[in-house]
Design a protein around this nucleic acid. Structure first.
Lengths: 216, 216
DNA sequence: TGGTGTGAAACATTTCACAGCT
DNA sequence: AGCTGTGAAATGTTTCACACCA
């Protein structure tokens, strides 16, 4: 969905296309799987087979960040995984807050897939007095009026939006106002955000609606 | 995530880039919103503002399919929405099956956003004897061994995969074997599928992992 | 006047192909 | 011998800019 910019400036390094950044986590995932199965070295060809992409594209993508391989051998799996995790900022944990504790928000806070990857949901917010104060999956639901202070006190860097569409834009505005620059948006809407804020949308209906084109 | 092909052949018409197809549902969504608020006509400029894209891109995208606008006026909202829905195959309903009735599968079958868009989940499958036979959100859970016959009997065209990662590839293989060509995959894996099968992945962790790059 | 439709230009991304390293 | 890293070519996508039309 909407992203600020399609180019990533590494600060001092080269300019990296956004689409390359989005592929990096998939490389990390495959490398982790290979490492778990005891492999030590992997070629761009093997990586490409697993990810259904060309070896050349993988080599080119990696070349934006350094020279990680050894000619004639391939890449050291553990080393490459570590490098990519560092590049992506996955060598640390990140605190997140979920806004909207209806059905979807509850599913998100109880999803066991975030914590093992270093994404810790530390706070849950809702606008409804009926829900504020409840404890859900170990989180005491807070009022949205506390958003800004909580984000600061808990060092929250990621906002996860699970409110109904009619409140999504205002919640996103509030997250941005609270200093959040990374938002995972489950509401079926293309939000407006200022430059410098990244939003990724999770929207299964949109995915279905483009697939039907190919089977109609 | 993995898609078969990045080009769409409309049959007799021109070749349409895959990326254009993926934008069409977003146009439909905005058009629906404008129509609901009583508007009759919309310009590519207005559409572009809402979707954070350039008017030229919208006009170019639409031009792959026909000449829908009127110079000096813009697009008739209801007409354009209808045309795009027809192009995408959204002028009918689609039957879907969910495979994997754990936490995630239950969330998916009880998600109220699919049916209003014409996606009807008609069957639920699981491998576990403890779950088969249970009724969840009005669906009697079936054994995976019945997958192929149910897909045929119920005219199911879309498979939704919500099994744990270790069974995802085999479930996808079974769906393909049952004749399914459109798969919505919630498992954190890049599946292997034959040409002609489209898979879209829903993977919030991957989304988070690429956003951290920009805030690290 | 105002906004579409569209070739052509600009730009971005992928693929090729091969020198060079281990 | 085998596989990386990478300029250059090929391909794909977006933007420009303007003729044309209601």
């Amino acid at each position: 969905m909407a992203t600020t910019n399609n180019i990533a400036n590494t600060g001092s390094g080269p300019i990296v296309p956004e689409v390359v950044i989005q592929r990096l986590p998939r490389y990390v995932r495959v490398l982790t799987q290979f490492a778990d199965s005891g492999e030590k070295v992997i070629s761009s060809e093997q990586l490409g087979t697993r990810l259904q992409m060309t070896p050349a594209q993988i080599r080119k993508d990696l070349s934006y960040f350094g020279r990680f391989g050894k000619q004639g051998r391939g890449y050291d799996i553990a080393m490459l995984e570590g490098q990519l995790r560092t590049i992506l900022g996955l060598d640390r944990t990140w605190n997140a807050a979920v806004v909207g504790m209806g059905r979807l928000g509850r599913a998100v806070v109880s999803y066991p897939g975030f914590a093992p990857e270093g994404f810790n949901i530390l706070a849950a917010f809702d606008a409804s007095d009926d829900i504020v104060g409840q404890t859900i999956s170990g989180l005491q639901v807070r009022s949205i009026s506390e958003l800004k202070t909580s984000v600061q006190n808990l060092d929250i860097k990621i906002g996860i939006v699970t409110v109904p569409i009619e409140h999504a834009q205002e919640v996103i505005d509030a997250l941005v106002d609270a200093g959040i620059r990374s938002i995972l948006n489950y509401a079926p809407l293309s939000p407006q955000v200022p430059k410098g804020v990244t939003v990724r949308g999770i929207d299964p209906v949109l995915s279905l609606q483009s697939m039907t084109y190919y089977i109609r």
